[in-house]
Amino acid sequence: MRQFAVIGLGRFGSKVAETLAKKGVHVIAIDSDPELVGRVSDVVTKAVQIDSTDEESLAASGVKDVDVAVVAMGEDVESSILTTALLKNLNIKEIVARACTKLHAQILKMVGATRVVFPEEDMGIRVANSILSPGVLEYIELGADYTLAEIEAKSESIGHTINELDLKTRYGINVLIVKRKVIEVGEKAGEATEKEVKVLPTSDYKIQRGDILVVVGNSKDVESFEKHMK
């Protein structure tokens, strides 16, 4: 099982730690603030209150054994850079660091980060795209002008199979997954719950009302398909 460390437990870091923990992996959560450490202590494998810029404390926390370390503090630029450099010295192979600016990102890469992320910038892009294309429920840029998007099926596609829609030829996109809400009836009379299921669609899969199509393709092709589905 892969092991992870998340250093910096603000909104971004705590969410990363909680999400990883829910996947059942080993997570060490680290912050200098005891209140933030306490909030995730019941969720993660190990929660530690230390100053991550102190090399001895960082090494003693157990991070030397992790496969991936996430440096999640963003606003405290000095601490994020020092922590990243110390993780590099501890021979952590994969270091994902959060950056606030392009210069910050460049320095993080120089001192050892293998990947730099811009959560605020990425979220801004996704919000802007959701405003421009309200039919797109989720929008993720994959790089090299490719996009992964969740698009709700509209009337024109409902009742047709994937093969009949011929989306690859008409729009240059592929449907990877279909999300669908189903009602599960409980053992007690009148007991029912709504559940989301994910389907890997075959060519004869018939689109139903309420289906969410997870599609991938060139960004312009995805945008064209979304406009057609309005």
Rank of each mutant, 00 (worst) to 15 (best):
K188V: 12
V175I: 14
T84H: 05
V37H: 03
S155F: 14
L58H: 04
A144G: 05
V111A: 03
R209Y: 12
N129W: 15
M73E: 07
I131C: 02
R11P: 11
V199A: 08
V178L: 04
I107R: 05
I50T: 09
F12V: 04
C100N: 06
R180I: 12
I7Q: 02
V40N: 00
I131N: 02
R170S: 13
V40L: 11
V116H: 01
D33T: 02
R39K: 15
I183C: 08
A192L: 08
A60T: 15
M229T: 02
A99D: 06
S219L: 14
S61P: 04
A192Y: 15
E121N: 11
I30H: 04
G38Y: 09
V63E: 00
V66F: 02
Y146G: 03
H228A: 15
I151K: 00
V25F: 04
L90F: 00
T83N: 08
L9P: 03
T161C: 05
R39G: 13
E75W: 06
K154T: 08
T161R: 07
K198P: 12
D76A: 11
L108F: 10
A85C: 11
D211Q: 04
K88A: 10
S57A: 15
G210L: 13
E184N: 10
M123H: 08
D51L: 13
L167Q: 02
A105Q: 06
A149E: 01
I158L: 00
N163Q: 15
S80Y: 06
I212Q: 00
L142V: 10
K109Q: 09
K22S: 13
G172Q: 10
H104V: 14
K109F: 05
H26S: 11
V136R: 02
Y205V: 01
E226F: 07
T19N: 06
M123K: 08
Q106C: 12
N91M: 11
A5V: 09
G217M: 09
K188S: 14
K230I: 15
V111Q: 08
T53V: 14
T101A: 02
L165N: 03
D221S: 12
T53H: 10
D31L: 06
A192H: 04
D221F: 08
V215H: 03
V222Q: 01
Y205L: 03
S133C: 14
I92N: 08
V216W: 01
S203T: 13
E194T: 15
R115A: 15
A97L: 07
I81G: 01
D122H: 02
A72M: 06
V197M: 07
D54P: 08
T161Y: 04
S130R: 15
